[in-house]
Design a binder for these strands. Structure first.
Lengths: 212, 212
DNA sequence: CCAAGATACGGAGGCACCCTCCGTTTAACA
DNA sequence: TGTTAAACGGAGGGTGCCTCCGTATCTTGG
């Protein structure tokens, strides 16, 4: 009875490949057809059997969650890449734009997300954490370079971003949010004259919230 | 060709009755089983055939919308009744409590509501209007009686209410919201000493937002 | 009160999708 | 290359969706 075989086996290549394919297909199908789209359609688009889909993602919610998680991770990685951009402020701006785009493509999925978020608060925690860190990284670099106020926490910025996107049912919301974000980033920017003062305030008591 | 028959006929009694029954059943079934609940279950509970249900509400969304509208109207009517209560401040407080309860029973339906709101912005407009008027009526009476500040608009109060309920996934959110509302109403209350001043300020420039 | 016509009712039936189950295939390891 | 665990695919039973139409019921004019 050689039960010493509990050393984990390498996962099968086809399994890994298929999982990836299904995620890709699901992203496309859900974005196009909304959260009610047929899972059989997803399987067909992925070029796998329906059984395979169900083995990887036993419930519809599991699939939602996985797709969403993956995209959050991609946003997070984008922040990683943007860290090496020349202009830190521009990098932050670009990342925010990508985030808005991310929300935009999820338009049809908002109901599904509400449902998923409700059933798995762990997912909410995960994405908040990930996104906060992404923003924090970009924000921190810009602050260290002395180009931005240091008294805005990543959490605050994320909340502002979410709040702005929350009104995404009005027509033209996207450009509106983009405009607001630009204004916002400009506001965060350290004015040349005030640069020294901002650097001094970086790790001390945050200054009183400026009016208008 | 006597086409003068366009004088509207009285609607059939059974049709009216069945419509009402379906709405009642839908409310119960959706609250219990979430927005995915079977429409056939709704029909069965209402004691009507599935065909009848579909004639009255051709799509699932139509049914959602009708149920929701009806409840908003009930909230609105409650405000009407509360207008004749003795204590205007207490009336407002009671209405707010009912509104929170209304949200609470909709817990499972939040995803459906998101969906419905998205597809029919007219519904959103309707309910905002209705609820704003309901609050306005209670608020106005309390202000006229000199028991409350007159510089809070119904829209603001409604927004605050919605905002507070927006966090309804944390455990214990309901009591938290109720507590916050109490604080809020207390804050709106005119202090005996300041009563005269408040009455004077009623229709002029709002005073600076009070601290703490 | 009755007849006639308008209107609403119910549920059978066809269809799409959900999800499980298991015989077949394939990749990892020795 | 053989063995075996793991993954694959899709047939099939079940459920819910929605339409369609013969039947039942209500309103109205006489």
């Amino acid at each position: 009875m050689d039960d010493h075989t509990d050393q984990t086996r390498k996962p099968r290549a086809d399994a890994v490949r298929n999982r990836e394919r299904v995620l890709e297909a699901a992203k496309a199908v859900f974005n196009a057809g909304g959260p009610e789209a047929s899972l059989e359609a997803v399987a067909k688009r992925a070029g796998v059997g329906i059984g395979t889909l169900y083995r990887h993602f036993p419930t519809r919610e599991d699939l939602f969650e996985a797709v969403y998680r993956r995209e959050v991770e991609q946003l997070s990685e984008l922040a990683e890449h943007l860290r090496s951009a020349k202009d830190p402020v521009d990098a932050l701006r670009r990342w925010l734009r990508s985030a808005v785009e991310f929300v935009a493509t999820k338009k049809g999925m908002s109901a599904a997300l509400a449902l998923t978020y409700q059933s798995s608060s762990e997912l909410a925690a995960f994405s908040m954490d990930r996104l906060t860190k992404a923003i924090g990284s970009l924000l921190g670099r810009a602050a260290e370079a002395g180009q931005m106020r240091g008294d805005m926490s990543p959490e605050d910025l994320l909340r502002a971003l979410i709040g702005m996107c929350y009104m995404h049912d009005q027509p033209g919301w996207q450009s509106s949010v983009l405009r607001m974000l630009d204004v916002f980033v400009d506001g965060l920017r350290v004015q040349p004259a005030a640069k020294a003062k901002a650097r001094a305030a970086k790790r001390t008591t945050p200054p009183e919230k400026r009016k208008r």
